[in-house]
């Protein structure tokens, strides 16, 4: 929990401000039997006593707008304050450009907060100007490359205003910094799924890209998940792409036993079985063997899961046996 930051010298309480003496503060009314009572600072109580008063009066004024800033500074997760601030902005016709700067400064202090990013989004919608959003989110992602809120805002801006042009380069640079950054892989998928599309050429290009990454770091689940994701768009399916299956068998032959490789080969086997395309490499026996190897040696934490899958392959044998009779 972050410090709510309210220890500045020279602070004047609202109750001591002459320009506020027409307002009767409204203390929080917890009823006769208060519970979960938070020991707020005197400053917190003072600001919120006046915020409640303004809210109750529905006062739409410049001083109310200033007050919401103080309230936000004490608790940036107070959605009621933000909502009222938006009503004030509309009513007062405030310059929304300066509001963009303001919310940017709050985002920098509280980058993992639903309310600040939502406020930003509403402003961008009102202004219909997304020109700063890629930079703003890139900055937030520089500090935390997996910040969910920042990615969500970025995706929203890109999708709403068609800002796909340089996104793959952005993703590339993040993946060269950290090839295990799953948020960046997800963004790669997002761009292809919403913009580039899944033409056969694009699918093959993405497959090559991913296999290159796996060559260096074989234990990277993000890359394997992405590979499976793009193969959903390959007409030949997960077992029909010769480049991918050859790549996997080569790794296996070279003694790679990454659980993600073995799991992937199991998926290839399963699809081959379902499509009646089994061969020497991809068949029920191989799948069962790999499940056992994962359960007992390479991925013991998931023993129950691998044994469950193994049992399912047993059932394929039964079903296929019945069919052939």
């Amino acid at each position: 929990m972050s410090d709510c930051g309210d220890s500045d010298a020279g602070w004047i309480f609202y109750k001591d401000r002459p320009d506020w003496n027409d307002i009767k503060p409204v203390p929080e009314d917890d009823g006769i039997t208060p519970v979960v009572v938070i020991a707020h600072s005197e400053k917190f109580e003072d600001v919120y006593d006046y915020f409640r008063a303004i809210l109750q009066k529905d006062e739409k004024s410049q001083r109310a707008l200033e007050l919401t800033k103080d309230a936000v500074e004490l608790n940036s997760a107070n959605y009621t304050v933000w909502q009222y601030r938006r009503e004030l902005l509309k009513e007062l016709g405030t310059d929304l450009r300066s509001e963009l700067d303001y919310v940017e400064s709050v985002i920098k202090i509280s980058p993992k907060n639903y309310q600040v990013w939502h406020h930003r989004r509403v402003l961008v919608e009102w202004l219909q100007d997304p020109s700063q959003e890629l930079d703003l989110t890139a900055e937030a992602l520089l500090h935390d490359p997996k910040n969910y809120h920042a990615w969500q805002h970025r995706q929203w801006a890109i999708k709403s205003f068609r800002l796909y042009d340089k996104e793959i380069e952005f993703v590339d640079s993040l993946l060269s910094d950290d090839v295990r950054n799953n948020s960046a892989w997800n963004q790669r998928y997002f761009v292809h799924n919403n913009h580039t599309g899944w033409s056969d050429m694009n699918v093959q290009r993405e497959i090559c890209y991913t296999l290159e990454k796996i060559k260096f770091v074989k234990n990277n689940e993000s890359a394997w998940n992405y590979l499976r994701g793009i193969l959903l768009h390959d007409k030949r399916g997960i077992n029909g792409n010769g480049v991918v299956t050859a790549f996997c068998e080569e790794l296996y032959k070279n003694r790679c036993r990454s659980p993600f490789l073995l799991a992937f080969i199991i998926d290839v086997c399963e699809e081959a079985i379902k499509k009646n395309e089994t061969n020497g490499f991809h068949n029920v026996e191989r799948a069962k063997e790999l499940c056992t190897a994962l359960a007992t040696k390479y991925d013991k934490i998931r023993e129950k899961y691998w044994m469950y899958l193994r049992d399912r392959f047993e059932m394929y044998v039964c079903v296929n046996g019945e069919n052939s009779q």
């Binding site: 929990m1 519970v35 979960v36 020991a39 600072s41 917190f44 997760a77």
Partner: peptide, 19 residues
């Protein structure tokens, strides 16, 4: 359930959650 320290001010808009 009765009293919380000042660092819970950040959850002042989540009191039913705390309960």
């Amino acid at each position: 359930l009765m009293h919380l320290p000042g660092n819970y001010s950040c959850l002042d808009a989540s009191r039913p959650w705390l309960i």
